[in-house]
Protein backbone atom coordinates (compact mmCIF):
# COMPACT_ATOMS: atom_id res chain seq x y z
CA UNK A 1 0.00 0.00 0.00
CA UNK A 2 2.83 2.37 0.90
CA UNK A 3 4.60 1.46 -2.32
CA UNK A 4 1.45 2.26 -4.31
CA UNK A 5 1.09 5.51 -2.44
CA UNK A 6 4.68 6.55 -3.12
CA UNK A 7 4.40 5.45 -6.75
CA UNK A 8 1.29 7.58 -7.28
CA UNK A 9 2.97 10.49 -5.52
CA UNK A 10 5.98 10.32 -7.81
CA UNK A 11 3.80 10.05 -10.95
CA UNK A 12 1.84 13.10 -9.95
CA UNK A 13 5.02 15.03 -9.15
CA UNK A 14 6.73 14.01 -12.39
CA UNK A 15 3.72 15.09 -14.44
CA UNK A 16 3.66 18.46 -12.85
CA UNK A 17 7.38 19.07 -13.17
CA UNK A 18 7.15 18.26 -16.89
CA UNK A 19 4.39 20.81 -17.29
CA UNK A 20 6.31 23.41 -15.34
CA UNK A 21 9.34 22.83 -17.57
CA UNK A 22 7.20 23.21 -20.70
CA UNK A 23 5.83 26.47 -19.40
CA UNK A 24 9.34 27.80 -18.86
CA UNK A 25 10.69 26.98 -22.35
CA UNK A 26 7.86 28.45 -24.36
CA UNK A 27 8.95 30.82 -27.18
CA UNK A 28 9.31 34.50 -26.41
CA UNK A 29 6.64 35.59 -28.87
CA UNK A 30 4.00 33.34 -27.39
CA UNK A 31 1.66 35.07 -24.97
CA UNK A 32 0.86 33.19 -21.84
CA UNK A 33 -2.85 33.65 -22.33
CA UNK A 34 -4.67 32.41 -25.36
CA UNK A 35 -7.11 34.97 -26.58
CA UNK A 36 -10.51 33.51 -27.28
CA UNK A 37 -12.61 36.66 -27.52
CA UNK A 38 -11.90 40.32 -27.93
CA UNK A 39 -14.01 43.06 -26.45
CA UNK A 40 -14.95 45.31 -29.32
CA UNK A 41 -17.43 47.40 -27.39
CA UNK A 42 -14.87 50.08 -26.55
CA UNK A 43 -14.65 52.66 -29.38
CA UNK A 44 -11.24 53.01 -30.94
CA UNK A 45 -9.76 56.45 -30.53
CA UNK A 46 -8.67 56.67 -34.17
CA UNK A 47 -12.21 56.14 -35.43
CA UNK A 48 -14.03 58.55 -33.20
CA UNK A 49 -16.98 60.31 -34.90
CA UNK A 50 -16.36 63.83 -36.05
CA UNK A 51 -19.23 65.10 -33.90
CA UNK A 52 -17.21 64.40 -30.78
CA UNK A 53 -14.68 67.09 -31.69
CA UNK A 54 -16.85 70.21 -31.10
CA UNK A 55 -17.68 68.98 -27.62
CA UNK A 56 -14.08 69.30 -26.61
CA UNK A 57 -13.57 72.59 -28.43
CA UNK A 58 -12.89 75.83 -26.57
CA UNK A 59 -15.83 77.42 -24.74
CA UNK A 60 -17.81 80.10 -26.54
CA UNK A 61 -16.90 82.86 -24.11
CA UNK A 62 -13.26 83.31 -23.42
CA UNK A 63 -12.32 84.56 -19.95
CA UNK A 64 -10.21 87.70 -20.15
CA UNK A 65 -7.38 88.23 -17.72
CA UNK A 66 -7.59 91.81 -16.52
CA UNK A 67 -5.09 91.58 -13.68
CA UNK A 68 -2.20 92.49 -15.85
CA UNK A 69 -0.18 89.38 -14.99
CA UNK A 70 1.31 87.33 -17.69
CA UNK A 71 -0.55 84.14 -18.34
CA UNK A 72 1.41 80.91 -18.10
CA UNK A 73 1.91 79.25 -21.40
CA UNK A 74 0.76 75.65 -21.69
CA UNK A 75 3.28 73.13 -23.00
CA UNK A 76 2.43 71.68 -26.38
CA UNK A 77 0.02 68.73 -26.02
CA UNK A 78 1.67 65.32 -26.57
CA UNK A 79 -0.41 62.74 -28.42
CA UNK A 80 -1.93 60.16 -25.97
CA UNK A 81 -1.25 56.61 -27.20
CA UNK A 82 -4.39 54.67 -28.05
CA UNK A 83 -5.43 52.34 -25.22
CA UNK A 84 -5.52 48.71 -26.22
CA UNK A 85 -8.84 47.00 -25.47
CA UNK A 86 -8.85 44.46 -22.63
CA UNK A 87 -8.41 40.83 -23.47
CA UNK A 88 -11.47 38.82 -22.52
CA UNK A 89 -11.49 35.09 -22.45
CA UNK A 90 -13.31 32.26 -20.72
CA UNK A 91 -11.81 29.64 -18.43
CA UNK A 92 -13.55 26.47 -17.35
CA UNK A 93 -15.12 26.61 -13.90
CA UNK A 94 -16.65 23.75 -12.02
CA UNK A 95 -16.76 21.66 -8.93
CA UNK A 96 -13.99 19.17 -8.20
CA UNK A 97 -15.17 16.45 -5.82
CA UNK A 98 -12.71 14.06 -4.28
CA UNK A 99 -11.99 11.56 -1.58
CA UNK A 100 -8.85 11.59 0.54
CA UNK A 101 -7.43 8.07 0.25
CA UNK A 102 -4.60 8.79 2.69
CA UNK A 103 -7.17 8.51 5.50
CA UNK A 104 -7.48 4.80 4.71
CA UNK A 105 -3.67 4.43 4.79
CA UNK A 106 -3.66 6.20 8.17
CA UNK A 107 -5.70 3.34 9.63
CA UNK A 108 -2.75 1.06 8.85
CA UNK A 109 -0.41 3.18 11.02
CA UNK A 110 -2.93 4.08 13.72
CA UNK A 111 -5.35 1.14 13.94
CA UNK A 112 -7.49 2.88 16.55
CA UNK A 113 -8.50 5.53 13.99
CA UNK A 114 -11.12 5.25 11.25
CA UNK A 115 -11.40 8.35 9.10
CA UNK A 116 -13.32 9.35 6.01
CA UNK A 117 -12.72 12.69 4.30
CA UNK A 118 -14.36 14.25 1.26
CA UNK A 119 -12.85 17.30 -0.40
CA UNK A 120 -14.28 19.77 -2.88
CA UNK A 121 -13.06 22.90 -4.57
CA UNK A 122 -14.65 25.39 -6.93
CA UNK A 123 -13.00 28.06 -9.03
CA UNK A 124 -13.77 31.62 -7.97
CA UNK A 125 -11.58 33.49 -10.42
CA UNK A 126 -8.46 32.94 -12.50
CA UNK A 127 -6.22 32.07 -9.54
CA UNK A 128 -8.47 31.56 -6.52
CA UNK A 129 -10.41 28.45 -5.58
CA UNK A 130 -12.83 27.98 -2.75
CA UNK A 131 -11.92 24.79 -0.86
CA UNK A 132 -14.14 22.68 1.38
CA UNK A 133 -13.64 19.47 3.30
CA UNK A 134 -16.00 17.34 5.32
CA UNK A 135 -14.99 14.35 7.35
CA UNK A 136 -15.82 11.84 10.01
CA UNK A 137 -13.64 10.12 12.58
CA UNK A 138 -14.23 7.19 14.87
CA UNK A 139 -11.62 6.30 17.49
CA UNK A 140 -11.69 3.08 19.43
CA UNK A 141 -8.91 1.76 21.62
CA UNK A 142 -8.76 -0.91 24.29
CA UNK A 143 -5.87 -2.35 26.31
CA UNK A 144 -5.27 -3.61 29.86
CA UNK A 145 -5.18 -0.04 31.18
CA UNK A 146 -8.23 1.60 29.62
CA UNK A 147 -10.95 1.54 26.96
CA UNK A 148 -11.60 4.61 24.85
CA UNK A 149 -14.44 5.44 22.47
CA UNK A 150 -14.81 8.63 20.46
CA UNK A 151 -16.49 9.86 17.33
CA UNK A 152 -17.04 13.17 15.63
CA UNK A 153 -17.23 15.17 12.45
CA UNK A 154 -15.37 18.14 11.10
CA UNK A 155 -15.48 20.69 8.32
CA UNK A 156 -12.90 23.03 6.85
CA UNK A 157 -13.46 25.96 4.55
CA UNK A 158 -10.90 28.22 2.93
CA UNK A 159 -9.24 29.41 -0.23
CA UNK A 160 -6.47 27.98 -2.41
CA UNK A 161 -4.29 30.15 -4.64
CA UNK A 162 -3.00 28.58 -7.83
CA UNK A 163 0.68 29.43 -8.46
CA UNK A 164 0.95 27.53 -11.74
CA UNK A 165 1.60 29.59 -14.90
CA UNK A 166 -0.63 27.95 -17.46
CA UNK A 167 0.21 27.60 -21.11
CA UNK A 168 -3.43 27.01 -21.95
CA UNK A 169 -6.15 28.77 -19.93
CA UNK A 170 -8.35 25.69 -20.14
CA UNK A 171 -5.69 23.68 -18.28
CA UNK A 172 -6.92 22.58 -14.86
CA UNK A 173 -3.70 21.42 -13.18
CA UNK A 174 -2.80 23.25 -10.00
CA UNK A 175 0.14 23.96 -7.73
CA UNK A 176 -1.44 25.74 -4.85
CA UNK A 177 -1.09 27.17 -1.40
CA UNK A 178 -4.03 27.88 0.81
CA UNK A 179 -5.37 28.76 4.17
CA UNK A 180 -8.35 26.99 5.70
CA UNK A 181 -10.36 27.30 8.88
CA UNK A 182 -11.36 24.06 10.56
CA UNK A 183 -14.08 23.23 13.04
CA UNK A 184 -14.72 19.89 14.72
CA UNK A 185 -17.24 18.49 17.13
CA UNK A 186 -16.27 15.37 19.01
CA UNK A 187 -17.82 13.08 21.60
CA UNK A 188 -15.57 10.81 23.66
CA UNK A 189 -15.66 8.67 26.76
CA UNK A 190 -13.69 6.12 28.71
CA UNK A 191 -16.13 3.44 29.89
CA UNK A 192 -13.48 1.86 32.13
CA UNK A 193 -9.89 2.42 33.22
CA UNK A 194 -7.60 0.94 35.85
CA UNK A 195 -4.65 2.61 37.52
CA UNK A 196 -2.12 0.01 38.60
CA UNK A 197 0.36 0.80 41.38
CA UNK A 198 3.05 -1.83 41.93
CA UNK A 199 4.42 -0.47 45.20
CA UNK A 200 1.05 -0.14 46.97
CA UNK A 201 -0.21 -3.24 45.13
CA UNK A 202 -3.40 -1.43 44.29
CA UNK A 203 -5.70 -1.15 41.34
CA UNK A 204 -7.83 1.99 41.17
CA UNK A 205 -10.79 1.55 38.82
CA UNK A 206 -12.61 4.46 37.26
CA UNK A 207 -14.46 5.75 34.25
CA UNK A 208 -14.77 9.01 32.39
CA UNK A 209 -18.29 9.99 31.28
CA UNK A 210 -19.31 10.89 27.73
CA UNK A 211 -18.04 14.39 26.98
CA UNK A 212 -18.68 16.75 24.08
CA UNK A 213 -15.99 19.09 22.84
CA UNK A 214 -15.45 21.48 19.96
CA UNK A 215 -12.21 22.61 18.38
CA UNK A 216 -11.19 25.43 16.05
CA UNK A 217 -7.98 25.52 14.04
CA UNK A 218 -6.27 27.10 11.06
CA UNK A 219 -4.45 25.03 8.48
CA UNK A 220 -1.86 26.13 5.94
CA UNK A 221 -1.70 23.93 2.87
CA UNK A 222 0.59 23.42 -0.07
CA UNK A 223 -0.04 20.87 -2.77
CA UNK A 224 -0.79 20.01 -6.33
CA UNK A 225 -3.54 18.50 -8.43
CA UNK A 226 -2.81 16.89 -11.76
CA UNK A 227 -5.34 15.84 -14.39
CA UNK A 228 -4.30 12.24 -14.90
CA UNK A 229 -7.25 11.41 -17.17
CA UNK A 230 -9.85 13.80 -18.64
CA UNK A 231 -11.59 15.40 -15.62
CA UNK A 232 -9.96 12.83 -13.31
CA UNK A 233 -7.41 14.26 -10.87
CA UNK A 234 -4.73 12.97 -8.54
CA UNK A 235 -3.39 15.33 -5.96
CA UNK A 236 -1.40 15.57 -2.79
CA UNK A 237 -1.04 18.27 -0.20
CA UNK A 238 0.89 18.88 2.98
CA UNK A 239 -0.87 20.67 5.79
CA UNK A 240 0.26 22.33 8.97
CA UNK A 241 -2.61 22.67 11.39
CA UNK A 242 -2.46 25.15 14.25
CA UNK A 243 -4.99 24.82 17.07
CA UNK A 244 -6.77 28.04 17.96
CA UNK A 245 -8.96 26.76 20.78
CA UNK A 246 -10.69 23.67 22.10
CA UNK A 247 -12.83 23.02 25.13
CA UNK A 248 -11.67 19.51 26.02
CA UNK A 249 -12.23 18.44 29.60
CA UNK A 250 -9.43 19.46 31.98
CA UNK A 251 -7.13 16.56 32.67
CA UNK A 252 -8.48 14.51 29.80
CA UNK A 253 -7.69 15.47 26.21
CA UNK A 254 -9.28 13.29 23.52
CA UNK A 255 -6.90 10.92 21.75
CA UNK A 256 -7.99 12.21 18.33
CA UNK A 257 -9.73 15.44 17.34
CA UNK A 258 -11.52 14.75 14.02
CA UNK A 259 -9.81 16.55 11.15
CA UNK A 260 -7.02 17.88 13.35
CA UNK A 261 -5.25 14.80 14.66
CA UNK A 262 -3.71 14.23 18.06
CA UNK A 263 -5.79 15.78 20.83
CA UNK A 264 -2.80 16.55 23.06
CA UNK A 265 -0.84 18.60 20.50
CA UNK A 266 -1.23 22.26 19.61
CA UNK A 267 0.01 21.84 16.05
CA UNK A 268 -0.07 18.90 13.71
CA UNK A 269 1.55 18.07 10.38
CA UNK A 270 -0.43 16.05 7.88
CA UNK A 271 -0.36 14.82 4.29
CA UNK A 272 -3.36 14.11 2.09
CA UNK A 273 -3.62 12.23 -1.17
CA UNK A 274 -6.82 12.91 -3.05
CA UNK A 275 -8.52 11.25 -5.98
CA UNK A 276 -11.09 13.60 -7.46
CA UNK A 277 -13.43 14.11 -10.38
CA UNK A 278 -14.10 17.46 -12.00
CA UNK A 279 -17.65 18.47 -12.91
CA UNK A 280 -17.54 21.25 -15.53
CA UNK A 281 -20.52 23.34 -14.47
CA UNK A 282 -19.81 26.89 -15.62
CA UNK A 283 -17.35 29.19 -17.35
CA UNK A 284 -15.65 32.18 -15.81
CA UNK A 285 -15.16 35.37 -17.81
CA UNK A 286 -11.65 36.71 -17.32
CA UNK A 287 -10.81 40.26 -18.36
CA UNK A 288 -7.16 41.21 -18.57
CA UNK A 289 -5.51 44.41 -19.61
CA UNK A 290 -3.22 44.12 -22.59
CA UNK A 291 -1.34 47.25 -21.61
CA UNK A 292 2.28 46.60 -20.70
CA UNK A 293 2.79 46.61 -16.96
CA UNK A 294 4.31 49.83 -15.62
CA UNK A 295 7.82 49.48 -14.34
CA UNK A 296 8.48 50.62 -10.82
CA UNK A 297 10.70 53.70 -10.60
Amino acid sequence: MIRTFLYSLSISLAGLLTQAAQAQVKPAGDTSIKKTAVDTSAPKPAQRPATAAPLKAAPLKKAVDTSGHKTAQRPPATPVPAKKPDSIYYVPGGLRLGIDISRFALHFFQPYRTDVAVQADARINKKLYGAFELGYNRTSHSDTSYTYKGSGAYATVGVDYDFLKKKDPSEKNMVYGGIHYGFARNTYEVPAFNIHNKYWQSVTPGSFPKTNMTAHWIELTFGMRVEALPNFFLGWAVREKIMLSNNAAEGFDPIVIPGFGSGSKSSQFDLTYTVSYYLPLYKLKIRESREPKKKKD
Partner: peptide, 12 residues
Protein backbone atom coordinates in the same frame (compact mmCIF):
# COMPACT_ATOMS: atom_id res chain seq x y z
CA UNK B 1 -7.31 10.92 38.33
CA UNK B 2 -5.75 12.26 35.15
CA UNK B 3 -5.28 11.04 31.60
CA UNK B 4 -1.53 11.13 31.04
CA UNK B 5 -1.25 10.12 27.37
CA UNK B 6 -2.69 7.54 24.93
CA UNK B 7 0.33 5.30 25.62
CA UNK B 8 0.43 5.70 29.40
CA UNK B 9 -3.30 5.75 30.14
CA UNK B 10 -4.50 7.18 33.46
CA UNK B 11 -2.59 8.02 36.64
CA UNK B 12 -3.39 9.49 40.03
Amino acid sequence: KNFVSPGCGFAT
